[in-house]
Amino acid sequence: MIPQSFQYEAPATLAKALSLLQQYGDAKILSGGHSLIPMLKLRLATPEHIIDISGIKGLSYIKEQGGYLKIGALTKESDLEESRTIRTRYPILMDAAKMIADPSVRNLATIGGNLAHGDAANDHPAVMLALRAEIIATGPNGKRNIPVDEFFLGFFTTALQPDEILTEIHIPVKKAKTGGAYLKLERKVGDYATAGVAVQLTKDDQGHIAQIGIGLTNVSAAPMRASNAEAVLKGKSPTDELIAKAALAAARECDPNADLRGTVEYKRAMVKTLTERAVRLALKRAK
């Protein structure tokens, strides 16, 4: 398990990183390395150039500003776990961070890398779908905001252009009566999800669900939103019956593959169960 040789650059600034990216064309971006390095070791990826952006200052932060929770792309999973803001106001992100791989991996793995990899098995994509986040990409012509619904295009494919770097994530700042949860079924701790469900919802004064986002992990080629499930609950009072109906909708709209983690039938059933449970937990947290 030895990677093929490559050229390595560790630019100190984003500008330099972007110019190297343009210069090399085929370069791979390395931040925490926990998606890329395994692929390099298996020689599934054999880039000629690697641009290590982990040394770029100012890309690691968690702050509420201008109506958004802004998270720098180089923010590590362990930073999320240890953040008071995340713990007290965005439990859905805390749920996810704690379930990603293991503590040592989380000490290096970054949220930007988790999203930019475009892997439906990663946990943050579903969470960002539930949170209706925006992904900020920086390229030679500056920044652009990509709504998360336009970010995941297909199997390991994102809207990032070859000359762009994912630099920031914008999440609408937590409103009153908002709660979220991420539940993940795994074969053993640290595994990729057999199925995962992220739910973020806001209640109105009548106790109806004013807004809801539901994202699904590892039950489709690209990370997916459970739109039908959302539609069942949006604007409604969340009765047991409606929650069950929404869960069933999510189970039907997902598109899992049979693999070592389970049959299609099992995964759909798990999406149903996890959706019900995540909605209930989110409602409980939406105080």
């Binding site: 049959t263 759909r268 059933a269």
Partner: peptide
């Protein structure tokens, strides 16, 4: 004996239903 196997048995015995 994995969760998946248990679930399959429970489905066959009518305790849980497939979607």
């Amino acid at each position: 004996i994995t969760p998946q196997k248990v679930w399959k048995v429970l489905k066959e015995k009518g305790v849980v239903k497939a979607v």
